[in-house]
C-alpha cells in the first residue's frame, strides 16, 4: 500500500530529526545538527533492507517517489514564501556580506571536490523539460 511507503518515509524523517535535536543538545547548540542527513541515511538503509527481503513492493515505493516528485514544486512554494523584500532592502552591507560568502563558496567547490577519488559526472539529461513534465 502507498501509505506504507509514506509512513516509512515519515518514521525515518522523525527519527532523523530527533537524532539531530539530541546531537544539538549534546553539543550545547540551539539547532538541529544533521537531522535531515540522518533521516536520509536511515531511509537508504531501511528501504535497502526491506527491498532485499521483497517487503517493499512497488506500491510502497510509490509513496516515497510521490514526495520525491513533489520536491521541486515544494521548493517553488518555498521560494514564493521567502522574505525577499528584506534580502533586497537589507542595505549594502547585508547584500555585500551575503554575496561575498556565496561567491567564495562557489569558487572553492572545484578544489574541495578534488579531494579523494574524482567524481563521476551523471549521465546527461535527455530533454529535461519533457522529463519534468512527466514527473510533474
Amino acid at each position: 500500500m502507498v501509505i506504507y511507503g509514506v509512513a516509512a518515509l515519515a518514521v525515518c524523517m522523525l527519527a532523523g530529526t530527533l537524532l539531530g535535536e539530541l546531537l544539538g543538545t549534546a553539543l550545547g547548540v540551539d539547532a538541529n545538527v544533521g537531522g535531515v542527513g540522518f533521516a536520509m541515511i536511515l531511509l537508504i538503509l531501511v528501504t535497502h533492507q526491506l527491498r532485499r527481503r521483497d517487503k517493499f513492493p512497488e506500491a510502497s515505493e510509490q509513496g516515497v517517489l510521490f514526495w520525491s516528485a513533489m520536491y521541486i514544486p515544494i521548493v517553488v512554494a518555498m521560494a514564493s514564501a521567502q522574505n525577499v523584500v528584506k534580502a533586497v532592502t537589507g542595505g549594502p552591507m547585508a547584500i555585500l556580506a551575503g554575496l561575498g560568502a556565496t561567491a567564495l563558496g562557489f569558487a572553492v567547490v572545484p578544489a574541495m571536490a578534488r579531494i579523494g577519488e574524482p567524481g563521476e559526472p551523471l549521465e546527461p539529461l535527455t530533454t529535461p523539460t519533457s522529463d519534468e513534465k512527466q514527473k510533474a
Binding site: L9, M13, T17, G35, M40, E61, L65, Y71, M78, A81
Partner: peptide, 22 residues
C-alpha cells in the same frame, strides 16, 4: 507557507535519497 515550510520541504528532501547508493 505550509507547502513550502520546513516540514514538507525536509520531508521531500529526505524522499529524494530513496535509491541513492550509500
Amino acid at each position: 507557507s505550509l507547502m513550502g515550510g520546513a516540514m514538507l520541504r525536509d520531508f521531500a528532501i529526505v524522499s529524494t535519497a530513496y535509491g541513492v547508493d550509500l
